[in-house]
Computed example of a mutant assay.
Amino acid sequence: MTHQLEDELDKILATGDFYFEALGEGRYRSSWHTQGAWNAHEQHMAPASGILTHALENFQPRDDMRIARLSFEIHGLIHAGEFEITTRMIRPGRTIELIEAEMTAKGRTSIVARAWRVITADSTAVAGIEDATVPGPEESEVQNISAQWPGGYIRSIEMRAVRGRRPGKGIAWLRTPYALVDGVHASRLASLIGLADTANGVVPRAEPGDGNWMFPNLDLQIHMYRAPQGQWLGLEVQQSYGTDGIGLTSTVLHDVAGPFGRAEQILTVRQL
């Protein structure tokens, strides 16, 4: 790496107790804590998902609705440094709405996120959840995930794992001491979604650097049957690889009160 490139990275990957700095009018700058695991020059998908969720939540908000589904389509490299988020209404409605947020950097689309917002109502009489609760963070063991994965984002999180975690299946809990956006309040939803993409690295079937295998995800799909709460995100993960270079990471999402939804990530599994 040249000294000029090093200086540029030092400039755009500014340090601080936050993932993003708001520059106004939908523009942001990423900090070093967003640095990805696959490429030192890009952001990790996890905090990028969080800032997009933050933008979607604050676009024409309605007190009588909440986000029930989030989808993130990764179009290419998520550049570190400055970027812009634009939001728009796709499908307005009285009881359901579909909204979209697009992240662009260096003139190219990085991620397109969509959210279904659904009107809330009292469904206590028929409420029921089939996903089982799992041991919480206080019953889990501290893990040094930075020994397994590189990057500033990975170093920014605390991870604890439930005993019995193995390649392909396991349970982990995550939290971070860093604010999603410097000086700006971000909801618990945006902050927790900003950790969810980490699921792909919790129980990898191929260790990073083992045989030069890569398995980056192309998307992140999240469905939530209740609103999450607290600072801990629990990931009950299963990872499967097919024989033709395609895999899937499937996750039940938990907070300290129990399960609240599910996430799916399609993978491209390839050897360098």
Rank of each mutant, 00 (worst) to 15 (best):
A161Y: 02
R270Q: 14
D7E: 14
W173E: 04
V162E: 08
I96W: 00
I12P: 01
G76S: 12
M224R: 03
M65F: 14
E25G: 05
A196Q: 06
E82I: 12
M103T: 07
V203L: 08
N144I: 06
L253C: 07
S49Y: 00
G81W: 06
P216K: 06
P208Q: 04
P228K: 09
P167F: 10
F83E: 01
R270F: 15
I222K: 02
A257Y: 07
A22K: 11
S49G: 13
R117K: 15
S49K: 03
S250C: 00
T124K: 02
H33Y: 10
W173N: 05
G209P: 07
L248N: 10
Q60N: 15
S31G: 15
L235V: 02
R188S: 11
Y225C: 01
E207S: 12
E139K: 12
S30F: 07
D255G: 01
E138W: 03
T124E: 07
L98F: 09
P92H: 08
R108K: 14
G242R: 11
R66Q: 10
Y225F: 15
T87Q: 14
V203Q: 00
A186Q: 04
D182Y: 08
E73G: 09
D219Y: 02
G50N: 09
R262I: 03
Y153W: 15
K106M: 11
L5D: 13
T251F: 00
Q35P: 02
G107L: 09
E100S: 11
R163T: 15
V269M: 07
V184M: 13
F20I: 08
K169L: 04
A257E: 12
Y153I: 09
F72V: 05
T249K: 01
H41E: 08
W232L: 06
G50R: 05
I85D: 06
A172Q: 07
G168V: 11
M214G: 02
P61H: 12
H223K: 04
M159K: 09
D63E: 15
A263M: 15
R188N: 10
V142Q: 12
A127F: 00
T104F: 04
E73P: 02
E82H: 10
R29Q: 14
S240D: 14
G258S: 08
M159V: 14
L220P: 04
R62V: 05
P137F: 10
S240G: 08
L23Y: 06
A80I: 05
S187Q: 07
S140R: 08
T109F: 06
M159L: 13
W232H: 04
S250F: 05
E21I: 01
V142R: 15
L52H: 02
E21M: 03
P259D: 03
G164R: 10
I78H: 01
A105M: 06
L174I: 11
R66W: 02
A105Q: 14
K169E: 14
E102Q: 13
Q238I: 06
H79I: 01
